[in-house]
Design a binder for these strands. Sequence first.
DNA 1: CTGTTAGCGCTTTCAA
DNA 2: TTGAAAGCGCTAACAG
Lengths: 340, 340
Amino acid sequence: MVTIYDIAAKAGVSAMTVSRVINNTGKISDKTRAKVRRVMDELNYVPNHMARSLVLQQSNVLFLLITDITNPFYTTLARGAEDAAKKHGFRLLFGNSDESVDKEKDYIDTILATRADGVLVAPAGDLSLPHLETLRKHQVPFVLLDREVPGMDSDVVLGDSKENARKLVEHLTSHGHRRIALINGSPQISSARLRLEGYREALKLNDVLFDEKYVLETAFEPRSDLSEIERWFDRMDSLPTAIVAGNNVLAVEVIRTLHARGIQVPEEMSLVCFDDLGPFSEIDPFLTVIAQQAYQFGYLGTQMLIDRIQERGSADQPWKKVVLPADMIIRRSVATLDEK
Amino acid sequence: MVTIYDIAAKAGVSAMTVSRVINNTGKISDKTRAKVRRVMDELNYVPNHMARSLVLQQSNVLFLLITDITNPFYTTLARGAEDAAKKHGFRLLFGNSDESVDKEKDYIDTILATRADGVLVAPAGDLSLPHLETLRKHQVPFVLLDREVPGMDSDVVLGDSKENARKLVEHLTSHGHRRIALINGSPQISSARLRLEGYREALKLNDVLFDEKYVLETAFEPRSDLSEIERWFDRMDSLPTAIVAGNNVLAVEVIRTLHARGIQVPEEMSLVCFDDLGPFSEIDPFLTVIAQQAYQFGYLGTQMLIDRIQERGSADQPWKKVVLPADMIIRRSVATLDEK
DNA sequence: CTGTTAGCGCTTTCAA
DNA sequence: TTGAAAGCGCTAACAG
């Protein structure tokens, strides 16, 4: 491996001078600089970030921890984070927790051990609290994405889950639906809880009685075992006329289940959900959705994180909470009901 | 920051003993080990991977460079790589080159500077050659994924693009199609070239004359400017009856273009493509595709890479080339033609 | 079973 | 404008 000492020897200068050339610090004569540059090229020198980070006590690395790398909401978010990080000269590394608190724990350990300068986290759920406390204890700045965690104050970028749930439900009631189900993620996740709240409020506002049997709380990621959605349908005596899915992945699961039972959307069942399906929704623009600005979640979150990192030492700013609005994209997965 | 020296001092042992406890090396009395462990917990010690990598001259990090993080083929591949890396105790970091040779270059520099132990690359194209040569020069083991680069021998995991193109075309001819177009990625990419070859061979085998005007070579990622596909349609006097898309992203672009022109699939135009659309294809299982085993690309590639890393020093093995078979999933995007 | 020494590649501080 | 010394946190090699 070529080090600054190899360069120094061959260029007839000290290692310190090489370091100065690399980092453009201090005063160097043009001649020396040129010579050092030439030798660096000849020897194919590549700086060693680890050695550098070790002495500088900072890595210029940001870490993005998402919960589902196959979900276009998160990959689009990742693109936003990538662009923002690059713009500010940070490198961005990704991790994928698969909605698992345990895998998340492993990543937190890795993040700590690799001394990332900051972290963007879409927490797996409320049980992520200890992980966040660990980050806080080690003074690693972080920004929460898409979900909050009770008991932990921090910067956070959110959608307005409650409001959006209300919009979705009212879209359905305005088409004559009264028996509206909610197939939601785990109540251990703040966004799922708020979506349930919004759903209940919207029902009340529209004089529809809340019926517990129309709510299924499962996981935002499909479980591999026999589908809970399957079983939920099995025990349903009278089906709803419409379903709100807590996210895009659940919407797909619902559609599969409906297909398997020969139930047509929207003729026999209306369906709406949170989050669009990514580029592939274009194939058949079919599902009516709340389209959150995934890219902005990543971009803004990263900017907030970098602000926080660079603020180090200056007066502590209060925590920032950014709530990004979302549009409803109306397509054709909702039928209009005539019956009262 | 807590270091092994802090632990050592508080536990009344030397730093070396702490190091041994952390790494489970050497012989340590149970009593000492217990005490060191206790102090580590009390002080919330987190090992510093950078310091460790610096002395060990290895990082236990693998880097996966893909060309499109929003393409489910690559995210599924990433899941496979993740699982394989984890199984062997390596950490996996991702980068996204966006099909850009320049961004790829940046990542290669980062990879070199952070001293990853090995790299999995889906190269942006033939122009990636210098990047691979850089890796080779610095003795960083790498495995190519999904695409080869002329002039560079290495381990590689591929699909059988030629054979699969043939299957796709013959599926169309067997349904009576004779005017079959190919909308393909850049000829700078090996898989695109082979797909074109397979297409031509299949036409010949079925006594269909090759017609240049039915081939469009564009990019595997949609360009932001006015769609080339748009313009290609514009200058077409007699439309084909079927289209083979070089990958899933292009298929989506084709569908959008067709929709905009009010052309129905499959009634007025049949369409098939390479690579499935990920979980979301389930919503409307519509497109007939060659479904490559994306997960296996990542899993096997990672295993090959780790083999290569661990072989260090032992006799050089010849380069391995793994070709993964793919199944055609027949859905309903192909119409049967009666006309001869 | 445990400790001492030296050094991984780099930058900060101080001196020339 | 340049250099020498020290140290970031850790572990290999050797000594006890």
